[in-house]
Design a protein around this nucleic acid. Sequence first.
DNA 1: CGATATTGTTTGATTATCAAACTATTTGAC
DNA 2: GTCAAATAGTTTGATAATCAAACAATATCG
Lengths: 151, 151
Amino acid sequence: MDPKINEINGYLVSIFNDVLMIEERTLQTSQFKDVSIKEMHTIDAIGMYQEHTTSEVAKKLGITVGTLTVSVNNLVRKGYVNRVRSEKDRRVVKLALTKQGRLLYRLHDKFHRDMVRETLTEMSEEEAEVLMKGLLNLHSFLERTKEQLPE
Amino acid sequence: MDPKINEINGYLVSIFNDVLMIEERTLQTSQFKDVSIKEMHTIDAIGMYQEHTTSEVAKKLGITVGTLTVSVNNLVRKGYVNRVRSEKDRRVVKLALTKQGRLLYRLHDKFHRDMVRETLTEMSEEEAEVLMKGLLNLHSFLERTKEQLPE
DNA sequence: CGATATTGTTTGATTATCAAACTATTTGAC
DNA sequence: GTCAAATAGTTTGATAATCAAACAATATCG
């Protein structure tokens, strides 16, 4: 069983690094040169469809609210994000993507989908099913681990 | 097919984030509080078994040599890495882990193996096989993509 | 030998990050 | 209703991560 563990582990690590690297490089050679990969993930976390508060987005990204404030400052300056004070509760800031931001969001989303689609092309329905089950297993293990984390 | 793509994509993104977060948190609550997740990956890339040059490690990590030099300065100061000038070619610097560095390397490696082992526990041989095939597919797609990358 | 190439370091600028101090607003106790 | 406490976000100071470009040391090749 151990060689299998090593092999799977190796693929995972390699996949992580490659995805990050490819995303970064793709951004830098696109019309969105002024967006870093971290900023891209912030844009992704803000999302297309609902408005999210600063706290919500920070939690989703696993960073502090202060860090997000700084990053959003840059994204607002660059024209990807809008800040809207909530009318209901004037302490709350809602974050939303600008037109530019939504364009970038869709591009990034497409990259992810293409990546997965390509992976599935040579697999049968059943194999795809099993891959999904494996990822689900891994995912739930990680969620459990997270809960047990000290603090 | 599209809902499957979304689901797999979602798992992948979530797995990426969780692994990073758990690694970070685990480090910060261990005896190795002075090591960041990035530094951990540098230690991983330097590796246990052979000596690697600065250029080799930088390439493996996908960062510039300058960035690595700075990071290695810190890791040397903290006692995890040794720099050795090559005798054969005096321009070349070989990087190697100290005893501390090797200890940390093994701990990190164990985390990864446990993660994968746990994922496989509830799967049959065939399912594990298919998961591996899926990851291999994804991996080779990414390697191909990397090659086609502009510059 | 001297020009060119290679390997790594240094530097200056920008981004990412946190913790802690701070501001503005809301909520809740009296 | 007012004031203390709680909440949401911003600012600030410090440090790490990153790149590109200038630089230094060494090797190679004509």
